[in-house]
Each structure stands twice: as C-alpha cells, then as structure tokens.
Nucleic acid binder design. Structure first.
Lengths: 119, 119
DNA sequence: TATTGCTATAAACCTAGGTTTATAGTTCAT
DNA sequence: ATGAACTATAAACCTAGGTTTATAGCAATA
C-alpha cells in the first residue's frame, strides 16, 4: 500500500503518517521504500495505527509508544515491563478520574452545583 | 486563602492558577480581591480545582470546562445538557479505548506482538 | 528601615503534536 | 508527451496548555 491508501483507511492525514515516522513511531517492519523512494506499507500497519490511535487518545505520548515498539531504541525487557506496568496502573487511575468526572458533569447538569452564588 | 496556600493544597503552580483565571476557568464565586488587589480564594476552590484536574486529565479542554461552569458565558441549559451528554458518551468511548490499550500493552509485554520481523 | 518574601500584570518563551508551504521528482490518463 | 495527481523532504507555522521573565507594589520580621 502507498501512503494515500493508508491515510484513507486509517483516517490519519498523510502529513501525520510522515510525522509519526520521523518520530520513530513506526517500526521498520511496517514500511519499506520502492525504487522511487515511495513508502510501501504492509497491511499490518492498519491495526498497528489503530492501537497507536487508542494509546495516544488515552494520554500516551508519541515518545512513550515509540519506546515500547521500536527495536532500534532497544529498551530492555525489564524496562519495558516496568513501563507497561506503571502505565497500566496509570490507566486504572484514569478510569477512576473518568468516573469522578462523569459525576461532576452530571451534578453540573442537574444543577446540583452552583457557580452563581457569590461568597 | 491567598494564592500560595491554594497552590500548596492543590499542587497546582501559582502561575497555573493565574493562567486558569485568565482563561475564565475560575467562576467568580471562588475568588475575590482584597484591598491590595491580592486574590482571596474561598475554601470551595479546592474541591473545584480537584474536579478541574480530573476533567483536564481525561481530555477536556480548558475552554470546554469553562463553558460548563462559567455564568458569564451564559450557555443555555439545553446547550450544556447536550454538551454534557455528548461528553459522557465520549468518556464511555474512552473507557473502551483504555481497555483496548491495556490489551495492546499486555501483548507487547508478553512478546505476543513482534515488531522485529522484516516483512 | 531594609531585606526577604509574597503578591500583581504583561509579555515572552516553551513543548507536544501536528499542519502547511515550498520545492522537486514520478505516474497515470488523455 | 503533457497536465493533473501522487510522492518526497525540509523548514516554517500553528495551537493548547502552561512556565518564565521583567517589573513593580505590599508585608513581615530582624
């Protein structure tokens, strides 16, 4: 697949795909170059980018994801394990904050919170 | 309370508290000025900022929160309701993406995903 | 009363995550 | 074989969410 097709399937702008690559977010196995230097992507890139989108949307940074998936950077298994475990804890915290936020929003909606009254 | 105390209790830097105010994120009821133009905060600001922190951390923008809590901006009840309902849906999506991300992370950790193999 | 500490504002600066622009080579359809 | 569409890179630009800096007034304590 060429970049335009990946862009259309994933919904990510072409500029973003190139940007992610510059940031070392795309492991080599997903992309090679043809004789004209055009990027040729393997089909698996689609699922990969889908996971990347999820991770980014829940607050991972590009650098963090890159550290986990990039061989070149060569993070040790123990380091990755620690990182993933910490991150999974963070995500549990996250779930709690979401529940809290939902309560707050519901209270605002129900008028149970008053931001009008002067103190 | 003066700004330094609020900062210490909430963990938010003084510069951030002033920044939030500039962004209309702090309803008037939580802050007034003394004779020297120093900010005097009511005790309730602490819980409020705690909710703000949660909302920000799960992806709300300052402007969105501001729209919900600020009287001056005077968003209609119906508009707020729609916004909150949409946001609660988004947060449900969010929970799903978190579950998905946890699975991905676990797979990376378990070596069930291979980013090494050349295609 | 002077030095240290807290407060204020405005404006410049910073970072992450992209997007846009400028320039140039490639390819496909007519 | 030529114009429209696609690809490439580098560099400038943009936005959100802050932080830092410069400058100045007020306060608390030796």
């Amino acid at each position: 697949m060429k970049i335009n097709e990946v862009s259309k399937i994933t919904g990510l702008p072409i500029s973003t795909l190139r940007f992610y690559e510059r940031k070392n977010l795309i492991p080599d196995m997903f992309v090679r170059r043809d004789e004209n230097n055009y990027r040729i992507y393997s089909d698996e890139i689609v699922d990969f980018l889908d996971d990347v989108k999820s991770l980014l949307s829940v607050g991972f940074s590009i650098e963090e994801i890159s550290l986990l998936v990039n061989q070149q950077l060569d993070l040790s298994y123990e380091a990755k394990k620690k990182m993933v475990e910490r991150k999974i804890e963070e995500m549990d915290e996250f779930q709690k904050r979401i529940s809290k936020s939902k309560k707050f929003l519901q209270a605002v909606l129900d008028g149970k919170v008053d931001f009008q009254t002067k103190c």
